[in-house]
């Protein structure tokens, strides 16, 4: 992997004006382009702040004191934000707050980002249909966005974010209102995505299935980073994170991998059972 094509955070700290303690403290982390990075941690650990820094919302839109250096796929979110912004697709926590506010239909809503980029109408229609299909919203294209359920609104926000075919996806808890089937479909889809993806989620099991890396945040500190396997085999009770179901089950059954570690996802679980028997 070419050096400037990767993700690098060095001593990143963020502090809102008027707050006593920084929200992110001296974060240093690396990842490769095209990887899926799962960001976990309990509430107020700084996950949303990290997403806002990675997307450039901090400090471009929300003012805050940012120190340290960070580049994503060779770009800095700070230097030329409008240009950087065109490379990213961002889904915020509250899906209803992300509607453009002037769209009559789901199709118009997905088209919004594309219209803003001045893309030809014929191309827009094609991209809208593709994005809607990927998020299972084809049947809802002519419906009013207000008529959608919370989970559908989240899928709409994701469809809008991916319609522009971004290099970098930043998803802040994008499945919180989805039903189990919808969530499953989403993670299956995410596994095949080519873009560098940062995803905040509490769905530890799903993250272990698809993420290349897990970053654990606690009180603004990056307390662990590594593959799901590494992170959850060295889980600290302080982080207040549940272990993945595969891990818990294997631990109870003492199904170990050949390395004597416990499995964290389905694939590893199968290997462990195989190795034990």
């Amino acid at each position: 992997m070419v050096k400037n094509q990767s993700i690098s955070l060095k001593n990143l700290s963020v502090k809102y004006p008027g707050s006593t303690a920084p929200q992110l403290k001296q974060m240093t982390a690396q990842a490769d382009s095209g990887q899926i990075i799962g960001i976990v941690g309990n509430s107020r650990s700084g996950k949303t702040t990290l997403c806002q820094v990675l997307s450039g919302v901090i400090p471009t839109i929300i003012s805050a004191k940012v120190s340290g250096t960070y580049t994503l796929n060779g770009h800095s979110p700070v230097d030329d934000w409008p240009a950087y912004n065109q490379l990213t697709g961002v889904v915020l926590q509250n899906p209803a707050g992300q509607l453009s506010g002037l769209a009559d239909t789901v199709a118009d809503e997905i088209a919004f980002d594309l219209i803003n980029q001045g893309i030809q109408e014929a191309v827009i229609t094609k991209r809208v249909n593709q994005a809607a299909m990927q998020m299972g919203l084809t049947a809802q294209l002519t419906q009013h966005p207000e008529s959608l359920s919370g989970g559908q609104l989240q899928r709409l926000a994701i469809a809008s974010a991916i319609a522009t075919d971004p290099q970098i996806l930043i998803l802040d808890d994008p499945t919180s209102e989805m039903d189990p089937v919808g969530r499953q479909q989403f993670f299956n889809w995410l596994a095949g995505v080519k873009a560098t993806t940062f995803i905040v989620s509490n769905e530890i099991d799903d993250l272990c299935e698809i993420a290349d890396l897990i970053w654990v945040l606690q009180d603004g500190h990056l307390v662990a980073q590594g593959t799901p396997h590494q992170v959850f085999n060295h889980l600290s009770a302080n982080w207040q994170l549940p272990a993945p179901t595969s891990f818990q089950l294997a631990q109870k059954m003492n199904w170990r991998l050949p390395t004597s570690d416990f499995p964290v996802n389905f694939q590893e679980l199968r290997e462990a059972i195989h190795a034990t028997n």
Partner: peptide
């Protein structure tokens, strides 16, 4: 909340 007062009061883009 203070963050809200600051957000709407700030001279930002």
């Amino acid at each position: 909340p203070q963050r809200m007062v600051r957000f709407f009061g700030d001279d930002q883009q």
